[in-house]
Design a protein around this nucleic acid. Structure first.
Length: 552
RNA sequence: GGCCUGUUGGUGAAGUGGUUAAACACACAUGCCUUUCACGCAUGCAUACAUGGGUUCAAAUCCCGUACAGGUCACCA
């Protein structure tokens, strides 16, 4: 029996004509230096922050070079599949404004000429190459049961030897054609393994775009390439797909780095040109003083949907991702405020090769800055868009009071040093609720600061309401009246006066305005009081103040 | 256990043999400014780059060992 007969016995009905596919998926017609990248997730749930980070870089690298970025679904493990997994991935990408040039566009549609972009539909292709490999004598069937594999693993452990299917432990590699034939005819289940030509004693050097040159022992494991369900393993699918789809740069998490010897060997044996590799360190999280990988199960911030729910603007998240991807970005951006991420040239060499700790504070800071430079109408639009999904009541209120809300958002905005108080859209409501009757509640604890005496508060507010308030006052007039009010009650008109001579006064004008602020809003931290009063109007101001005025 | 990678402040990090013995940003602290907060400004925050040894006139930067951390050793990706 020849290898060809063996191939036919193992994969009957499958063609071994790899030329067909080589022709079907020709070299891409791209300009010199164009980078082709892919995001290749498994549909096992939602996108993880680390994956988003990788896809962001993949997209960026492709864009920078006028290349192609595509989405390939790796669903060769049907046990782990999740319903609507592809839709989840597509939505997460969409939410982050990461668009694809090719690949899956829904559970069962796709665009691009190098498909199918879902591995379960590429079975024929993989099997064709597997059959070809068998014919070449580079692959063979393995009849070992999981129990047998486990047994040899234990033997290897006992003998303190390397674990795996290699050398003398690769039993089925030595099976004769006759033995194979007999087993197949007996209906024994089998898988296909790659016949590794490598030796553990040989060293190979692989260049990684992020990690630099790494030296490994050559792979000598006869890895599984075709599983009993007829689908390929990751390693094999990676080699076939990235070759046929002409990926130039494989960017992925560094948990893959130890399989690199397998991959380069596979590419070589298949006569494929290997892509360039960039292995990204995982994003870490600190817990109990220890670093660990950000986990989708334990850390809410690991789920990409988290940012959507929080209402952190997508551009802000991208800005943050860019700063951890290339730390020189932050300084560049600082000097090029008018430019965008698209103008920045991503550099693989500048990617940190140790895992970065995910810094939520930093993200919020970036987000806060980003929001502070938006126009009031943009803040309104974005906040409304967020609220429509996550807080319908608030959305209604915003819609009913559009002009009012925009004026509110405009306070201390659109100036050289804009006010920075919103780091995400979900926190807006908790900062401005007192400006809307629908949300206003009479809280128990007012955050009065220096003046807390009820009599005094009553006196101050009463005087303000009866003598000083005039809805037609401009800011300077209002400001001066505050000083008059302070003076009339024995407080210093200027803070400086009080500081110079604290004995002479009960306090200063700042203490007075704090009373007015807190009685009106219940909070000690608010935007400019004059502006707030202007928006709130006389009726609301009086009714809120009257509650504090004794004898009313 | 084998193999691979990493280790600069609270965080992200700049720095790749020698001009000012560690840039910049976030966080934190204090002060100034301000009728609050935010903003802004100023100052402080690593006696030293995990550790031991070596190479060198000279090392955070090169080499070796150790420790610690992470990854990986599936018919999972």
């Amino acid at each position: 029996m020849t290898n060809k007969d063996l191939a036919e016995l193992l994969l009957p009905g499958v063609s071994s004509d790899i030329e067909y596919y080589e022709k079907k998926y020709p070299e891409r017609n791209l300009k010199e230096g164009a980078v082709v990248t892919r995001f290749a997730p498994s549909p096992t749930g939602f996108v993880h922050m680390g994956s988003l980070f990788a896809s962001f870089i993949e997209k960026k690298a492709a864009n920078d070079s006028d290349g192609v970025f595509y989405l390939r679904i790796e669903d060769t493990d049907q046990k782990r599949e999740v319903e609507n997994g592809i839709t989840g991935i597509i939505n997460d990408l969409k939410n982050f404004d990461i668009t694809i040039d090719e690949g899956m566009t829904s559970e069962n549609t796709e665009i691009g000429n190098y498909g199918p972009y879902i591995q379960s539909q590429r079975k024929e292709i993989y099997q064709t190459y597997v059959k070809h490999l068998i014919e070449e004598g580079l692959a063979y069937p393995c009849f070992c049961s999981p129990e047998e594999i486990e047994e040899t693993r234990q033997i290897q452990e006992k003998r303190k030897q390397r674990i795996g299917y290699y050398g003398r432990y690769a039993k089925c590699r030595r099976l004769t054609m006759e033995e194979i034939k007999e087993k197949v005819e007996n209906g024994e289940p089998y898988i296909i393994r790659f016949k590794s030509p490598g030796s553990f004693d040989n060293k190979i050097k692989v260049n990684d775009l992020v990690k630099g040159e790494i030296e490994f022992p050559e792979n000598d494991l006869d890895i599984v390439i075709l599983k009993s369900d007829g689908l390929p393993t990751y390693h094999f699918a990676h080699a076939i797909d990235d070759h046929l789809m002409h990926t130039t740069h494989v960017i992925r998490g560094d948990e893959w780095i130890s399989s690199l010897p397998i991959h380069v060997q596979l590419f070589k044996s298949l006569n494929f040109k290997a892509p360039k590799y960039a292995h990204l360190s995982p994003i870490m999280k600190e817990e109990d003083g220890k670093k660990r990988k950000l986990s989708k199960r334990k850390d809410p911030e690991a789920a990409v949907s988290f940012y959507h729910e929080k209402g952190i603007p997508v551009p802000a998240v991208k800005l943050y991702l860019m700063t951890i991807a290339n730390t020189n970005f932050e300084q560049w951006y600082d000097c090029n405020k008018d430019k965008t991420i698209d103008d920045f040239k991503f550099d693989f060499k500048k990617v940190s090769n140790s895992g970065a700790l995910f810094d939520v504070d930093k993200l919020y800071n970036i987000s806060k800055n980003y929001i502070s430079y938006l126009k009031a109408t943009e803040v309104y639009d974005n906040a409304l868009e967020w609220a429509k999904i996550y807080d319908k009541d608030f959305a209604n209120i915003l819609e009913q009071h559009k002009e009012y809300a925009i004026k509110l958002f405009n306070i201390e905005r659109e100036q050289k040093k804009p006010r920075k108080d919103y780091s995400c859209y979900s926190m807006i409501k908790s900062q401005i609720w007192y400006m809307f009757d629908e949300l206003y509640i009479d809280v128990k604890d007012y955050e009065f600061q220096t003046i807390t005496d009820e009599e005094e508060i009553s006196k101050i507010l009463n005087l303000y309401v009866t003598k000083y308030y005039d809805e037609n006052d401009d800011k300077d007039t209002w400001f001066n009246k505050m000083k008059e009010l302070a003076s009339e009650l024995g407080y210093a008109k200027e803070v400086k006066d009080y500081k110079n001579n604290p004995e002479a006064y009960k306090g200063h004008v700042g203490d007075i305005s704090m009373v007015l602020r807190v009685a009106l809003t219940s909070k000690s931290m608010t935007p400019d009081l004059y502006e707030l009063m202007l928006l709130l109007g006389k009726d609301r101001i009086f009714s809120r103040y009257n509650k504090f005025i004794k004898g009313n």
